[in-house]
Simulated scan of single mutants.
Amino acid sequence: MSSLFSSFKGTAQSLTAIRRPWREFFDITAVDIPSSSSDATTRIAQNLTHFRLNYTIILLVVLFLSLTYHPLALVTFFVVLLAWFFLYLARDRDEPVVIFGFLIDDWIVLAALVGLTVAGLILTGVWTNVLVAVAVAAGLVTLHAVLRSTDDLVMDDLESPYGPMLAGGDEELDSPRGDYSGI
């Protein structure tokens, strides 16, 4: 039981570490129209990487709001979310999944969780609500990702897919593809 709580605590701490401050997320001064479609694509990739947990929280809030008038569906999806968390997201990938004494492969766990999610959608009858909520959340996320300038994000975000190419300067970059010069 203590390993379960330590796993939960470790996962919560790692998720908290990657969440960006909401003040940075909602920075009005960083709103700017992209100059081209390639600029918009670059912004989407960088913002999705930089604000991934913030966007996930927005998706979950919109999904929760869409299910508030369906308490059975809300409880069902809370149970499914717990199953996803403990069987897939929070566990160490090196540890095998053992259910009732049987060793279960990762792909079987993933397929079972997807099946459980789809079954929950169909059996509670809220699949249209969920699809609309996900579409609305995806639209909000895309709109923010396109309009949020990434000029202030590139230098401090080492996980950005374009960070090493756009970093500039004469510092050494450890990249599997070699050194990049500034653009």
Rank of each mutant, 00 (worst) to 15 (best):
T124P: 00
F86W: 12
V134Y: 10
R93W: 00
W107P: 14
P161Y: 01
A137Y: 00
T76W: 01
V98T: 13
P21L: 10
S37V: 11
Y162V: 03
L110N: 07
G178H: 04
S160W: 01
K9V: 08
L123S: 08
S14M: 09
L110E: 02
D39S: 14
V75M: 02
P96T: 12
L131N: 15
A119V: 10
T150D: 03
A145K: 01
A138W: 05
S35G: 08
T56F: 00
L82W: 01
S6H: 02
N47M: 13
G125T: 12
T11V: 11
S6G: 02
F100H: 07
T56D: 14
I99W: 01
W107L: 07
H144Q: 06
A90H: 00
L89D: 04
L110T: 05
Q13C: 03
T128L: 08
W127H: 11
T16S: 12
S181H: 08
P161M: 06
A133S: 09
A30Q: 07
K9C: 06
A135R: 08
V141F: 00
I99V: 07
S66W: 02
V98K: 13
Y162E: 06
F51H: 00
T41L: 14
R177N: 08
V114L: 13
D92C: 05
P96Y: 10
T128S: 12
V118A: 15
D170H: 06
L153Y: 05
L143M: 10
S36Q: 04
L87E: 03
A73V: 05
S14E: 02
T11C: 12
L53I: 05
L4H: 11
F26L: 13
G163K: 02
T49H: 03
T124Y: 01
S2M: 14
L173F: 04
G178A: 09
I58E: 10
V132K: 13
T42D: 10
L110I: 02
F100R: 09
M1G: 10
D156R: 07
L113R: 01
A119W: 03
T124K: 09
F85L: 07
S36P: 06
L143C: 09
W107C: 12
L74T: 15
T150S: 01
S35H: 01
S7G: 08
T42M: 13
Q13N: 03
T42E: 13
A12H: 00
S36E: 02
L59W: 15
V109C: 15
I183P: 14
T41K: 14
I57F: 02
T128M: 14
A167H: 13
S14A: 05
G168A: 14
Y88T: 04
H70A: 14
L63M: 15
A12K: 09
L72P: 00
G10L: 06
I108V: 10
H50S: 15
